[in-house]
């Protein structure tokens, strides 16, 4: 079923929207959550959170042209929230690794986030992404948006793991420069 048709089901409050969503995007949403949580059961709970959140959010949202990014963003958020619920000692290894990698992109750890509203930050992030080549952007997003492992990215794009690491290293350096230029 086309995304537009699924969104119409949500808008008309037809509960089959949930089944159609699960059918089409369930495995991808579960995989995204599992990348971070490393626990199939909690990942499944996150997936269910996504359906409930989508049911509550459509309407007013009408993501006819970007249903999967819309759902995936909810899944990502839910997975990060679950991680935060865990004590620091029990934090997932992928989260520790990913945040450690991104920590090095920050020119100086401070209250920069508070100085920028979400809209300004969105522009900063998208200007950075827009300046990357499509290949480097996809690799960057697979790592820090979908939270894929290096080996999964290498397999996805038929690249060597070394090439993926070089691409990520270069993108992180660019992000650091970009954040510095933007005054963050």
């Amino acid at each position: 079923m086309e995304d537009r048709q699924i969104v119409e089901l949500y808008l008309s409050r037809d509960e089959s929207a949930l089944a159609r969503t699960a059918e089409k995007y369930g495995p991808a949403l579960r995989a995204l959550a599992e990348n971070l949580l490393e626990d199939p059961q909690t990942a499944e709970e996150c997936e269910n959170d996504v359906y409930l959140a989508a049911w509550n959010a459509i309407p007013p949202h009408e993501p006819r042209d970007y249903l999967f990014p819309f759902l995936a963003r909810i899944a990502r958020h839910a997975a990060l929230d679950r991680c935060r619920e865990r004590s620091r000692q029990k934090r997932s290894a992928p989260l520790v690794q990913l945040t450690g990698e991104l920590e090095r992109c920050l020119p100086a750890p401070d209250n920069a986030a508070e100085r920028l509203d979400a809209l300004a930050l969105e522009e900063v992030i998208n200007r950075f992404l827009g300046n990357l080549s499509q290949e480097n952007r996809n690799i960057f997003l697979r790592r820090y948006w979908y939270m894929d492992s290096i080996s999964a990215i290498a397999e996805r794009y038929s690249l060597t793991q070394s090439k993926v690491k070089v691409s990520l290293c270069r993108s992180r350096n660019r992000l650091r420069e970009h954040l510095k230029k933007e005054g963050l």
């Binding site: 970007y66 990913l98 969105e122 499509q134 948006w145």
Partner: peptide, 17 residues
């Protein structure tokens, strides 16, 4: 920063999917 990357343009996110 990891969390804020959720603000990435849905078109980029879709392309990476």
């Amino acid at each position: 920063l990891l969390e804020k990357l959720e603000l990435a343009d849905p078109a980029y996110v879709q392309a990476a999917a």
